[in-house]
Simulated scan of single mutants.
Amino acid sequence: MELPLVYVLNGPNLNMLGMRQPKIYGNATLDDVEQICIQNAEQLEIAIDFRQTNDEGELVSWIQECRGKAKGIIINAGAYSHTSIAVLDALLSVELPVIEVHISNIYRRESFRHHSYVSHAATGIICGLGLQGYALALAAMADLILEEDN
């Protein structure tokens, strides 16, 4: 039996985790995030495709690639969450469940981070729970997929 596929997409500067603003983002690296996702996906019996890019166009292309291929998208679009209508339009076009993740609580930060275009396409949003947010997003996505299949 083929496992349902979930894309875990990460936007700009997430490759700098562990080095960038550790008081906000902690000391864990993007590799640590990927390992958390791999371990949780195995337990949940879903497959993941984990990616990171600093390029908006590449992120849009990856989202579009999900249509007809994936069962859902977990996305931490980084700063593109707050600036990219292109990412929003791509998420809306694939017609899949989307869970938006932010490591920090964007509502306790600068006011420009309080608005997220990604949220307009998101089934759910997890923010402020650190790397645990990815594990929670995977569990929620597994439940959404199960509901859809029943």
Rank of each mutant, 00 (worst) to 15 (best):
H82S: 08
G133S: 08
K23A: 14
E148R: 14
A41G: 03
I24G: 04
L136M: 13
T53F: 01
D89S: 03
L136V: 14
L59D: 00
N54P: 09
E42F: 08
R113F: 12
G18M: 13
S93C: 03
S61N: 15
D49M: 06
A41P: 06
V87S: 06
F50V: 08
A122V: 09
I24V: 15
N27D: 14
C66Q: 04
E147M: 14
E45A: 12
V33Y: 00
V101L: 12
G68A: 08
L30I: 15
A121G: 05
A86R: 01
G26F: 11
I106N: 03
T53D: 00
V94W: 00
G68T: 05
Y107T: 10
S81T: 15
R51E: 05
I63H: 06
L5S: 01
D143E: 13
G18L: 12
E100W: 06
R20L: 14
A79C: 07
L17E: 02
Q35E: 14
E42R: 15
A122C: 05
D149I: 13
D32E: 08
V33W: 00
C37L: 09
R108H: 13
T123P: 01
G18P: 11
T83G: 04
K69A: 06
L59F: 07
L144Y: 08
V60F: 02
I63Q: 06
R51A: 09
G130E: 10
A28C: 13
S119E: 08
S81C: 13
K23R: 12
S104M: 09
A70Y: 10
L3P: 02
I38V: 15
M141Q: 01
I24M: 10
I38W: 02
D149T: 14
A28W: 06
L30T: 07
E65W: 11
V6T: 03
S61H: 14
P22R: 07
L3A: 11
M19D: 02
I73T: 05
G124T: 10
Q132W: 11
I126K: 07
G26K: 10
Y7R: 12
A79G: 09
Q43H: 09
S104L: 03
L91S: 01
T29Y: 07
F112C: 05
I24S: 09
P12R: 13
K23L: 11
H102M: 08
D149H: 15
L136E: 06
C37I: 14
V94F: 00
L131N: 12
I63P: 02
G72R: 02
S111C: 09
V101G: 05
A140Q: 14
V33F: 00
L5P: 07
R20P: 09
W62A: 11
G124V: 02
L138K: 05
E65V: 02
L92V: 04
W62H: 12
Y134D: 01
G72P: 02
H115Q: 09
Y134S: 04
Q21A: 15
S81Y: 02
H102C: 05
N13F: 09
E110H: 05
D143Y: 05
S84C: 07
A121E: 01
N13Q: 12
K23I: 11
R108W: 11
N105M: 07
D31S: 13
P12Y: 07
W62M: 15
S84V: 09
P22M: 10
G68P: 10
E100F: 06
N27F: 13
Q39S: 12
Q132V: 07
I48Q: 00
A70G: 06
A79K: 08
D89C: 01
V98A: 02
L3F: 09
T53K: 04
S119F: 02
